[in-house]
Design a protein around this nucleic acid. Sequence first.
DNA 1: GCCCCTATATATAATAC
DNA 2: TGTATTATATATAGGGG
Lengths: 105, 105
Amino acid sequence: MDKVKIPIKKIENPNKRQVCYSKRKMGIFKKASELSIMCGAEIAIIVFSPAGKAFTFGSPDINFMVDKYQNFPVYINDKKVDKSWISEQEYNFILRELDAEKKHT
Amino acid sequence: MDKVKIPIKKIENPNKRQVCYSKRKMGIFKKASELSIMCGAEIAIIVFSPAGKAFTFGSPDINFMVDKYQNFPVYINDKKVDKSWISEQEYNFILRELDAEKKHT
DNA sequence: GCCCCTATATATAATAC
DNA sequence: TGTATTATATATAGGGG
């Protein structure tokens, strides 16, 4: 069981990918819920599955937050990125760099 | 170190709450990144910190997804909730019920 | 605030039902 | 699809620098 080290790359097997998607989506929603409760933060998540279904999580209200988002400057690691956003590739690249650094140490 | 079982409730100590927020936000963004890469899903996250800053994560593009969201039916656990959303309280209630069930077993 | 460390809690991949 | 199991991987609370 789970002898394989989980590489962060696309899962080719469709069935496994679907299972992984369901589990991780649930996990993320749970963590989002915990964050909002424990830290008093507001968080909205929108997920589009490969199958084309959309799932959302919003605290307190996803429509409210989407609207609020339009009028807020956005920060990434304390850097203001005004009306921009971080791409998945960019974010993953940063994370991988950090991981690599840690392993070297 | 960490002898306390972390209860899912509001952290009263402001300093601890801030630290917890930072760590967990980073963790959620990382997991969102992994989900999009491994499963080919599209995911957008908007977080408003208690301090009033907004952080976003979007794959492939948060504005695109926010827009796309407007035109999609939304599902929660395969239940179509057309143009509605799940509240944090509601979601947490469901999760806690499930946890309670598991502990009984 | 960030980074490091450690012990523990949680998430999850593979599998079976 | 959902549930359960189990071993492992990851996340994280608390504390120090």
